[in-house]
Every structure is written in C-alpha cells, then in structure tokens.
Design a protein around this nucleic acid. Structure first.
Length: 901
RNA sequence: GGGAGUUUAGCUCAGCUGGUUCAGAGCACUUGCCUUACAAGCAAGGGGUCAUUGGUUCGAAUCCAAUAACUCCCACCA
C-alpha cells in the first residue's frame, strides 16, 4: 500500500473525532480514580469562535488529555453563557430588522423570540470546538439558563438576601443609554477621548460685582466643564473654602448661564484649586462626585436625561435632543449670548459600556447590590496563602488591589433575557392609611405568596421585580452549579469533581469571573473552586493590535484549521504562548505545526517501508542506538514533567518537538535505517515501533489527531506483540503517558561527542566540497582517558560515511583536522591537495581565540582574591579550563607546524 | 495620579537562589544538496556590549539604584 508523501489532516481529523465521540472516550463518571476537573469558561451562547477561544481551549485540551493519560479521571465540562446584555441586544436588533419594536412586545413574547434565537444560533461555538479537537464531556453540556443553573442562581439570590448580603437601594449607577440598563463598575471601560474644556460664565445674582480696593471687578465666576449640556441640571457652583480668588462670593448666588436658574455658591475642600478655574459646577443627578457633594450640602437634584440619553422635559428648549447634539447646540447658544469665556482642547477618560460601547451616563436609580466587603476577604486569603495559585503569579497583585478596594456589586439589569430577580412586591395599607410596599424574596411565586400570607396576612396580587441579574451572577456559580452543587450540596458528583483543578482564562475577566467564583466557592462549598488559574495572553496581530471584529485583523479559526489542520493550528498557538504573555499571532506560525505533522507522517512512511527479517541478528550499533534513544527520551521526559508542573506548555511542546524531529528522525532513524533494499532485524524494528508509539503518546495532548492516526497504524506494524492489544476501544488517548525514569547522563554525553564528530566530518565535506558519497577515513588522537567512546564507532561510520576509524597517538600528516572539545580528529585527503594556506589560516584563527581564552582564565586565576574568595569548585573548574586551553593551544601549534613542513 | 510588568539574535521567547547549561532555543537567514521517508525536506553555517548609566562583588544577563522606552491594570479630577 502506497502512503501519500504529504499528510492530509482533513479526513483524518474528522474520522478520529467521530471515533472518540462514538466510543464516548471523553465521558467521565465518578469512580475510584483521582478526578481531574476543568470547567470551560462558557462562551457567549450566540458567539462564534475567535482566536482567543482557540488559544484558551487548546490549552485546556492539552491539560485535560494529559491528565487523562496520566491515569486520572479527566472531566472537562463544556457549556455556554446566556450573556444577557449582548444576546438581548442581538435579539432586539434582529427584531427591529423584522420591523418589530421590543417595546411593543410583552416580556413573554420577547423571551419566546430570544429562546428561538438561542436555539438557532446557540451552540455553534461548541460545534466549532470539536473541530479543534476539544475533548469535552459533551454529555454534560450546560447552559447558564438551563433548569439546574437557573434554579441554582435563584436559590443563591434568596440565600444571600436572607443573609443580608444582597440589598436594594437607590444609588448612582453606570447607565448604558443604548442597552437601557445599569451595568456594574467592572463593565465600564475608560477610554481616552479628545474633547474640549469649556469655560462658562456664571453671573452673580443681581450682577453684583466684586470690589477690590474700592475698584469694581468682575461680576461673574468662570467654571470649566467638559459637559456643558448638563448645566440644566446644575444646582450649585462649588469652590475651595480657602481659595482667595473666590472669598467674595461666599454666601452669594449665581445664575446658571442660558438657564437662568439661580444656584448657591458652596464651599468644599473636594475642589482642586489648580484645575480649570478652581470652580466646579455641581450637577448632582449626573455625576457621582456631584451626587456626593449634593448629599453633603443638601442640594436639589435635577434629572435632565431620559434613559436613552436624550434630554427630558427639564432640558427646556433642548428637550428630546440627544446629549451630544445638545452639547453642540447649547455651546452655540452660549457663545451667542457671550457666556463663554474660552474653549480649550482637552483629553480625558470617558467611560464606555463594555458591551455596547455607548458612553456611560451616571444615573441615580434603584438597583440590587451584593455586599462585597466580607466575602472579598476570604477570596483574598486563599490566593494569598497559596491555596489557589495564579500562573503567572504577577496577577496576584491586581487581584489583591481589586479585592482590597472592592465596592458593592450592582447585579440588577433592566433587561428581560436572564435570570429574573426573585423579589416580589406587595402593597399594604397601613393603619395611618398610607400605602407601604413590602418586598418578599423567595425561590418561587408560590413560596412568596405563602410568606406574604404568613407574614402579612396578604393574599392579593404579587408583583415580581422586572429586572434580571447580571450575567456574572450566574457565571460565578459555574464550577458548583455544573455539578448541581447548589441545589444538592451533598451529591456524589459535586463531592467527586469539586474543587476543580485548573482554570484557564484570559486575564481581562479576573475580576468579572475569577474573583467572584472564588467568593462563591468559599460561600457555598467552603472550599476553593479550583487550585490553579492559568492566565492566557491576549491574541494580537503582527502589529501588536488586539484582534477584533472591527479591525478585521482576526483570521477565521475554522479556515485556519482547514488550511493547516487542527493539529497544526494548535501547535502554532502553543508555541508562541507562554502563560500570561500576549501572543503576537501570525498565521505563518501554523506552518511550523503543519510541517511537523508532515515530518512525523514521513517518519511513519519510512518505518512502514522497511522489510523486517526475523533471522537477522541485531547489530551492535542498533543496540546502542536503541539504548541511546531510550535514555534520551527519559531525559526529555523529566524536563517535560517539570515544564508541566510549572504550566510551561510551550516549553514542553518544544522539547517534544525537538525530541521527535531531531533525536528521533534525524538521529535515531538514521542510525538504524537499513541500507536500501536490505531488511531490518526484528528486534530493532520492534523497539523502534515501541519508541514511536511512546512518542505519539507524549505528543498526543498537543496534536491529538495525527498521533491517533499514527498510533493506530503502528499497531499493525508490530505483528508479534501488539495486534492483540488493539481492542475495540483502543486509542492513543487511553494509553499511559510515558513517565521519566533514571537515565545515564554519561551515555548521553558520549553520544553527543559522537554526534559532534559526525558533524565535524560533515562540515569537512561541506567546506572541502566533497560528496557525501565519498568514503573518508578518520583518525582520532587518543586522549588521556576521557574523550571519545568507541561504542559509537559504528554510528560515526554510518552517519559520517566514514570507512575506518583509527585511534592514534600521533598527529596525522597530510590531513585536515578539527577538534571536538580536546579531542583531535584528522581526515586524510587522498588524492587531494590540501590548501595549506587556508588550513593554516583556519588553525591560526582558532589558536588566536584559544590564546585569548587562556589569557582571560589566567587573569582570573592570577587574581588572589578570586582564588581565595571563590568556592573550591569554581576554582577547580577554572583550573580545568586552563589545562584544556593549554592542551588545545599545544595541539593547534603542532598541527600548524606539521602543515607548514 | 497610583500600581504592576517588560526590555537578551531579524522575529517570538528560555535563561531558578550571582561562577561550564552562560550567552541559549525555535522560526527566519546564508551556503551546498531534488542523497529512493519527508524541498512542508537534508547537511553545514553566520547572527547578540543581554535597553542605558552607575553601584555591590574576586566575579553581574542574573543582585541594588537611577534613567529611557514600551505594555497592562486600577482611580470620580470637573
């Protein structure tokens, strides 16, 4: 059977994914093995796969597949997030394209559309993950709004409310005028924006003037603002109490320009005298600081905006206008009325909504909050004391800072798509005849009714809160709710799978998600939700820009997979992505992965092409080759294990890559490769197949598809032993991961020396323009004990195409030479002139370098302080260097002499 | 404004508690090869004052300080 010389991943990848699914190899049930659990950071249910997901899920898959092969009961739970704001926005948009206005629908009608939308587009992203090879337990696929998760969220809300950790209150919140909802502080992104600073004149009431030494001064105060449209809401002007410039205004009142309202001058130390004119206009309804000052000084609060960011009836002639249009209009009017002193360019930070990018409007409204101070303490502690480890560790700093300065979490959203707040309102008449509203928080309306009756004897209508909860209020329960640990805290699954092991996520949701999961874990399990958090970097393009839809600089992951194969793309991503480092992604990196897959494929072709002889005796070289390869694998395995312990996945992959490409393909296979047309002995062949298999196991977590394909083909190679073990469900992913064993470093060093000699021979050929086919003889000057180990003679002969190797004690005349360490090698050039001059020049350069090196060593050794101060070992090393250098110089000098003769 | 991090070859990055793992790896590059596994390849090779300046030390890429550049996070300066 002819095998194609190019590896084609497409058919292979599809075939094996189907196989894994069919055999349910990703499925996990609690048993007596140790559990290894990962929960997926649930992507937006209506999202599509982007490069960030690719990176994130590749890393998860590597860890999960490796754990599985290490004998653990690996469980990777997939799922999606309902993403309330962005999904609702998408549905609203879809409806408006159909000519349907959300406001014309009832809540139930809208939700029906939303669920339809979710059914249609939801889960595309999970399908895409299969193409990547993700070994998720699909039977466990969850959704943050499915029954179990919904009920868990509601129960937690009720519980926290009863514990006094959730409260309802009127506060200044971040209002998104596009999504028409409040958002949490974390959902506000501050962006630098180039705006203007407007200097407006506020005339003193009755045009009273300042008197300075009997001379009349100004009759107005200038206030600098970036938001002139808010002057309709001004209820004071504030200056610093110690500001000399404004003492004359104490107790006076001023006229808001263009509005005509008279407002007081107040004094407060909050004002920065250096900024602007040192005078601040106060708009309590539309600025958090002004709001606080308003409370302090009992100022009136005038709301001038509608929820959608247009001016309301308090906006006077500007009512109905958008806030930014109003800014222009009002400035024009003020200019005309000569109420503007000047306008400056100004750069400041403006808050934008994370989801809609609309400019956030501070707004006073009644919302639900979670009290954070107490639960934050525990969450900080478990990271500080190492119960949870961050990789890389530097994220501990920002985590700590956030938790130490935490504010209450606004969790209500004025949306319909989400978990509806289980708060019920009832109107009670009181004895004095007034009406009073009571709130009952309960897991269901029935429950609420029961409480209403018991507590208030009320049997009338209950009105449920219209708002839903912040999406993260369900995400923070994810590691628990996935195993139904909220509703059934003692069930077998939660006890077995929780706490999970590793969480892989991007650092931008450390506060949104990671920190809050830790809080929920402590609150509801009294146990951390995971032991390690691996923060991936952000995927950027070649120019260092974040990949985004709007820039169009993000490649389509599915197209990449089609082009390079999932294995190739996985390898490309992993190679450039150490934990926490941003990943400058360039499509061409996937080529390396694709090429690697092809390399392995061709190694298979080579091995498959051999004819095997059971009669043939194993040669000594082959025996040594196998021994060496085994040692080499043990050595690299040790390194890889260390790398995994430290979550250095790219290093682990690189080690595996070099082991396979360099050690296995370039050296080992060449060592044992029989001459064309000749068979290979059975013993060597079987050993090679076993080594190949183990290499596929080692590589499998990184490149699951090709390793599965090759592993299966290898099973058919070793007829004596392996056919029987290929049972129905056999898969490379069910094999044991090879583990490191003791290895003989001396053996590896000896072989390295042999490899260097081979390189020396090849180099000689190259520089002398000799054909690789021409057989050369090699003379090695015997060292004093240490040096070249003749065990490798056969290998040197084979790979260097060397005829004879002789160990001599004298230098060889009429030969080119090279040195490996302190070992001198000579290659006589039969029937060839040696370019004496060139050879001398080369040697003299080497000599010069060696002398320089010796000089620096001598300088060190000549330094008494060094000899006395440095540890014995270090000095001994220097002495050895000196001896080696002297030996080398001597040898070089002798060689030059010889040549010149 | 506060905090954190980064700076090592053309690119992306390793270099732990100072000393033979000390200047490394992969890719890219150069030269020669279509050598019956692989040109998505083989063989060989060339690249770096370890950001700058000082200091500590017998000895610094490594420790300390200052400077510069870049990145990220946090914060209500109108």
């Amino acid at each position: 059977m002819e095998i194609a010389s190019k590896y084609d991943p497409r058919a292979v990848e599809e075939k094996w994914y189907e196989f894994w699914l069919e055999k349910k190899l990703f499925h996990s049930e609690p048993d007596n093995r140790r559990a290894y659990t990962v929960v997926i950071p649930p992507p937006n249910v209506t999202g599509v796969l982007h490069m960030g997901h690719m990176l994130n899920n590749t890393i998860q898959d590597v860890l999960v597949r490796r754990a599985r092969m290490m004998g653990k009961n690996a469980c990777w739970v997939p799922g999606t997030d309902h993403a309330s704001i962005s999904t609702e926005a998408k549905v609203v948009k879809m409806l408006s394209e159909k000519g349907i206005d959300k406001r014309s629908l009832t809540r139930d009608e809208f939700l029906k559309y939303a669920w339809e939308w979710k059914e249609k587009y939801g889960g595309i992203i999970l399908k895409q993950l299969r193409k990547l090879g993700a070994s998720c337990d699909w039977d466990r696929t969850a959704f943050t709004m499915d029954d179990i998760r919904y009920e868990s969220v509601i129960r937690v809300f009720v519980d926290l409310y009863n514990k006094g950790l959730i409260y309802r209150g009127a506060r200044m919140v971040n209002w998104d005028p596009q999504a028409l909802t409040a958002v949490s502080d974390e959902e506000v992104i501050y962006k630098e924006s180039h705006g203007k600073l407007f200097y407006l004149k506020y005339f003193v009431e009755n045009r009273e003037q300042r008197t300075e030494n009997g001379v009349l001064g100004k009759d107005y105060i200038v206030v600098a603002t970036t938001r002139p449209e808010t002057i309709m809401g001004d209820t004071a002007v504030c200056v610093h109490p110690e500001d000399e410039r404004y003492q004359w205004l104490k107790g006076k009142r001023v006229i808001v320009p263009g509005v005509g309202r008279v407002v007081p001058i107040i004094m407060d130390e909050y004002v920065d005298r250096e900024f602007g004119t040192g005078a601040l206009k106060i708009t309590p309804a539309h600025d958090i600081n002004d709001y606080n000052l308003g409370l302090k000084h009992s100022l009136e609060s005038i709301n001038i905006f509608n929820d959608n960011g247009t001016l309301n009836e308090n906006g006077g002639k500007y009512a109905g206008m958008d806030r930014f249009a109003c800014r222009k209009a009002i400035m024009k009017d003020l200019e005309e009325a000569n109420l503007v002193e000047k306008t400056e360019d100004y750069v400041n930070k403006v808050g934008h909504s994370e989801r809609t990018d609309a400019v956030i409007e501070p707004k006073l409204s009644t919302q639900w909050f979670v009290k954070m101070s107490e639960i934050a303490k525990k969450a900080l502690e478990v990271v500080e004391n190492g119960r949870i480890q961050f990789h890389p560790e530097k994220f501990k700093n920002s985590y700590r800072h956030w938790l130490e300065n935490i504010k209450d979490w606004c969790i209500s959203r004025q949306l319909w798509w989400g978990h509806r707040i289980p708060a019920y309102y009832l109107e009670l008449g009181t004895e004095s005849g007034e009406r009073r509203t009571e709130i009952i928080v309960a897991v269901s309306e029935d429950e609420a009714r029961k409480i209403a009756k018991e507590k208030y004897g009320y049997t009338g209508v209950l009105r449920q809160d219209e708002d839903v909860l912040d999406t993260w209020f369900s995400s923070w329960l994810w590691p628990i709710s996935l195993f139904d640990g909220i509703r059934n805290p003692d069930n077998e699954e939660i006890k077995y799978y929780y706490p999970t092991d590793d969480l892989i996520t991007a650092p931008d949701i450390i506060f949104f998600w990671v920190a809050r999961m830790i809080m929920a874990g402590e609150e509801y399990r009294d146990e951390v939700p995971f032991k390690h958090v691996y923060f991936t970097g952000i995927v950027r393009d070649k120019l260092g820009r974040k990949m985004s839809k709007s820039l169009g600089n993000s490649p389509d992951p599915i197209e990449l997979i089609e082009k390079y194969g999932a294995d190739g793309v996985r390898m490309g991503m992993l190679l450039t992505a150490p934990a926490g480092n941003d990943l400058p992604f360039d499509e061409s990196i996937c080529e390396q992965g694709r090429n690697f897959a092809n390399k392995i494929w061709n190694a298979l072709r080579l091995v498959k092409g051999w004819t095997v002889s059971s009669e043939l005796q194993q040669s000594a070289e082959n025996a040594v080759s196998i021994e060496w390869m085994e040692q080499r694998m043990a050595c690299v395995l040790e390194q890889i294990e260390k790398d995994f312990e430290q979550y250095r996945l790219s290093e682990a992959l690189m080690s595996t890559y070099k082991l396979i490409w360099d050690d296995f393909c370039s050296w080992f296979l060449e060592m044992i490769k029989p001459a064309y047309g000749s068979p290979i002995d059975r013993e060597t062949y079987n050993a090679a197949i076993r080594i190949f298999e183990r290499l596929m196991c080692m590589l499998h977590p990184f490149m699951p598809f090709i390793t599965e394909e090759i592993w299966h083909i290898l099973q058919t190679c070793d007829e004596n032993e392996n056919v029987a073990k290929l049972g129905e469900n056999s898969s490379v992913m069910m094999q044991h991961m090879p583990v490191s064993v003791f290895f003989d470093q001396r053996m590896l060093d000896d072989c390295d020396l042999a490899r260097e000699i081979i390189a020396g021979v090849r180099n000689t050929r190259n520089s002398k323009g000799l054909s690789p086919k021409e057989v050369l003889d090699l003379f090695v000057v015997k060292g004093d004990g240490v040096g070249f180990n003749p065990r490798f003679d056969g290998i040197v002969k084979k790979l260097g195409n060397v005829g004879t190797i002789e160990y001599v004690s004298e230098k060889v005349d009429g030969a080119v030479s090279f040195m490996v360490g302190t070992t001198e090698c000579f290659i006589p050039l039969k029937n060839k002139d040696i370019d004496v001059d060139a050879e001398c020049k080369k040697l003299e350069e080497e000599l010069k370098y060696a002398e320089g090196f010796l000089a620096s060593v001598m300088k060190k050794l000549g330094n008494e302080k060094f000899v006395n101060g440095a540890p014995e070992k270090v000095v001994a090393v220097e002495r050895q260097k000196k001896a080696d250098a002297e030996k080398k110089i001597e040898a070089l000098k002798a060689q030059i002499e010889l040549l010149k003769k």
